[in-house]
Design a protein around this nucleic acid. Structure first.
Lengths: 208, 208
DNA sequence: TAGACAAGTGGACCGTCGGTCAAGTACGCT
DNA sequence: AGCGTACTTGACCGACGGTCCACTTGTCTA
């Protein structure tokens, strides 16, 4: 891949400005109050530019999420144990859940915005696909959630092949999208979440 | 409570028509495509009537949810074991999770719509509160989710007072709001969900 | 350095949404 | 029958996500 020519300098500058503006607005206001128009205004560009760059509200949020999740993705695939390869599955899963809880805790608004974007924009009329190239994100090009889910799923399956690892991983990770849990995170209690996730993971992995 | 006079006949008829229309639309279309205007048209009433009766989109969805959850609420508080009082906590929790998974499975669209309503309507400008009286729902007047959470939470705490029962209950129940899990339910795999919820619950309740 | 062409930009515009409201309608009580 | 009031209605509102296209600007070539 990686076809086509380089990105123009002004375009890159604007992309950055939009991302940073979204970040700041998301930190200051509730996600549904962060409209694309407000983002554009805060970034000092026209609304059309935002859509040109990111395609849709969903696209913007995903791009921001990828950026945030990049380091974790790297650590998981290439980093040192216990997050990276090498440690036993249960330790890797625990470490991973800790890291995810902490990451989500530091980015409370974004997860909610992603959820909001997912339900709000019932796919743009034309199924355009932007933001596929030049993507920061997990090492491969897959969306953040799928990467996380795949990882957790594999770790569970490795230790307990008798269980429904895919679904269990969804349940574990799904809690991060639940409103009450998000509210908790907003009050800075991500350590409490991590502890409970560890309890659940331990319960699952404790074998027959 | 229960003050004021009785509900007028035409009002009751319309309330019923609106509820049934919402039900049908939710079964046939994705939640974000079920607009209040469409509901009104399908029910054969004006849009204003829908808002007069239910206050907001959220109010409508909550009313529908209450109606659906009424039987479960009854069974849990007054019914026979293992769902009702009498059985040991772990059995009650298992039975409850089974029942919830099945209920949610039969009402896929509604949960998603509730989530959508929660993020979409950032509370109506005037904080009106309708639908507080004449509410079917769990025996008390509390919203469905709070009732469910309270119940699961108590059962966990009863068996494992050393754990963070509140949070664990949120995580368990929160999975029902997660998109991937909802998609699974849409494909009729509620038994699979129930099984995995049992695994998690067992994992939590086992031990010291 | 000139100039040409693609890439990028901006904001008026569109359809739709959730929600409001004032004016009209009809129920139920006496 | 007649009255008060609860109920109904649809035009209306502001805001949203998303589109469009005339216009500007960066960059590549000669």
């Amino acid at each position: 891949m990686a076809e086509g020519r380089r990105e123009r300098a002004d375009a890159a500058r604007n992309r950055e400005a939009i991302l940073r503006a979204t970040e700041e607005l998301l930190a200051r206001y509730r996600p549904e109050q962060v409209s694309m128009e407000r983002v554009a205004a805060a970034a000092g560009v026209g609304k059309g530019t935002v859509f040109h760059r990111f395609g849709s509200r969903m696209g913007l949020m995903v791009a921001l999420m990828r950026e945030r999740a990049y380091a974790l993705g790297e650590a998981v695939t290439n980093g040192p144990p216990p997050l990276g390869p090498g440690a036993p599955p249960e330790e890797r899963l625990m470490a991973f859940l800790d890291a995810v809880a902490e990451l989500v805790g530091r980015n409370k608004g974004l997860l909610a915005a992603l959820g909001h974007a997912a339900t709000t924009s019932s796919k743009s009329p034309s199924g355009k696909e932007r933001e596929d190239d030049h993507a920061e994100g997990p090492p491969d090009g897959r969306p953040v959630y799928q990467f996380w889910h795949g990882h957790a799923s594999e770790l569970i399956a490795e230790r307990r092949p008798d269980l429904d690892a895919e679904l269990l991983a969804h349940i574990l990770l799904g809690s991060l999208q639940s409103e009450p849990v998000l509210r908790l995170l907003e009050r800075g209690e991500s350590a409490r979440l991590a502890a409970s996730l560890r309890v659940m993971a331990a319960g699952i992995l404790a074998g027959p």
